[in-house]
Amino acid sequence: MSPNLADAGGILIVDDMEENLIAFEAVLSPLHQHLVRARSGEQALKAMLRQDFAVVLLDVRMPGMDGFETAANIKRLDQTKHVPIILVTGTESGADYAYRGYAIGAADFIAKPIDPWVLRTKVNVFLDLHRKNRQLARRAAAGDADRLTDITERLAQIELLLRNRPETDTAGLADRIAEVERAVETLLPGGTGTE
């Protein structure tokens, strides 16, 4: 199945060093995704508020707002909290880096020097997840629209019963109203999902 471009999300690459940004772009270009650069945590946050990303590749060591602080800010915002973050660490990083990263919500780590195949594979997993989540959301929205159409038709039938009958069949009307109520409950948050 070929990926739908409407379901594709960009990749945000955050690093303060130009040569690292160029290297990441070269490694990720075979994925044919929109790549966006940010040279600081502040730029990364601004970019994330402007567009949807499937994954963020975030360097831990940056001047000013470091990668941990940037990741924590990304996870605090409702609009961006579900975007997976891959933290890029140096070889000198220890177990405390992993603990700290996972504690703030990082999805994965990759250490420098970077193996291009490993990086592409990890990023591609998150791109696939993003694509599938978008497809599921679209299907759910279409299903809700179908159910709303059905509910509207049922309400129209009830209205016709009320208008056209001087002596309303209260038992039949109560049954139809109960059907509509069950259908509406399935659309509400926390609904049972069954009619």
Score class of each variant (00 low, 15 high):
residue 60 V to F: 05
residue 120 R to L: 03
residue 87 L to Y: 06
residue 102 Y to M: 12
residue 81 K to P: 00
residue 98 A to V: 15
residue 86 I to Y: 01
residue 122 K to N: 06
residue 93 S to F: 07
residue 80 T to D: 04
residue 106 A to M: 09
residue 109 F to V: 04
residue 108 D to N: 15
residue 107 A to W: 03
residue 115 D to E: 14
residue 95 A to G: 00
residue 106 A to H: 09
residue 117 W to H: 12
residue 122 K to G: 01
residue 95 A to C: 00
residue 70 T to D: 02
residue 71 A to T: 07
residue 60 V to K: 10
residue 111 A to S: 15
residue 92 E to M: 12
residue 121 T to D: 12
residue 59 D to T: 03
residue 73 N to S: 13
residue 91 T to P: 00
residue 68 F to H: 11
residue 122 K to V: 03
residue 106 A to T: 13
residue 92 E to G: 14
residue 88 V to W: 00
residue 80 T to A: 05
residue 73 N to F: 06
residue 70 T to G: 04
residue 84 P to R: 06
residue 70 T to P: 04
residue 91 T to Q: 13
residue 66 D to N: 15
residue 65 M to T: 09
residue 76 R to V: 00
residue 62 M to D: 01
residue 66 D to G: 08
residue 80 T to V: 05
residue 60 V to Q: 11
residue 119 L to K: 10
residue 89 T to W: 01
residue 97 Y to F: 13
residue 90 G to F: 06
residue 80 T to K: 02
residue 77 L to P: 00
residue 60 V to A: 13
residue 64 G to P: 06
residue 68 F to D: 01
residue 71 A to L: 15
residue 87 L to D: 02
residue 108 D to G: 09
residue 77 L to A: 13
residue 94 G to I: 06
residue 63 P to R: 12
residue 79 Q to D: 08
residue 71 A to N: 09
residue 105 G to Q: 05
residue 65 M to A: 03
residue 118 V to N: 10
residue 79 Q to A: 14
residue 83 V to K: 02
residue 72 A to L: 11
residue 78 D to I: 02
residue 101 G to V: 11
residue 99 Y to T: 13
residue 85 I to A: 05
residue 116 P to S: 12
residue 120 R to N: 04
residue 69 E to Y: 01
residue 82 H to V: 02
residue 115 D to F: 02
residue 74 I to F: 03
residue 122 K to H: 02
residue 75 K to H: 10
residue 103 A to E: 14
residue 73 N to Q: 15
residue 63 P to L: 08
residue 111 A to K: 11
residue 121 T to L: 14
residue 76 R to K: 15
residue 102 Y to L: 13
residue 61 R to P: 00
residue 66 D to F: 10
residue 114 I to L: 14
residue 76 R to L: 14
residue 110 I to T: 07
residue 77 L to C: 08
residue 95 A to R: 12
residue 59 D to W: 02
residue 111 A to L: 07
residue 109 F to N: 09
residue 107 A to F: 04
residue 100 R to M: 09
residue 74 I to C: 06
residue 112 K to H: 05
residue 88 V to S: 01
residue 86 I to H: 01
residue 103 A to P: 00
residue 99 Y to H: 11
residue 109 F to P: 03
residue 92 E to R: 11
residue 114 I to H: 07
residue 102 Y to H: 13
residue 69 E to L: 10
residue 92 E to K: 07
residue 84 P to T: 03
residue 101 G to F: 10
residue 88 V to Q: 02
residue 68 F to N: 04
residue 60 V to G: 03
residue 105 G to N: 08
residue 118 V to P: 00
residue 86 I to F: 03
residue 95 A to E: 14
residue 84 P to G: 05
residue 73 N to C: 10
residue 67 G to L: 06
residue 99 Y to F: 12
residue 100 R to H: 08
residue 96 D to A: 14
residue 67 G to Y: 04
residue 111 A to M: 12
residue 99 Y to D: 08
residue 91 T to N: 09
residue 69 E to H: 10
residue 106 A to Y: 05
residue 122 K to I: 01
residue 94 G to A: 08
residue 102 Y to A: 07
residue 97 Y to S: 15
residue 96 D to W: 08
residue 106 A to S: 14
residue 114 I to V: 15
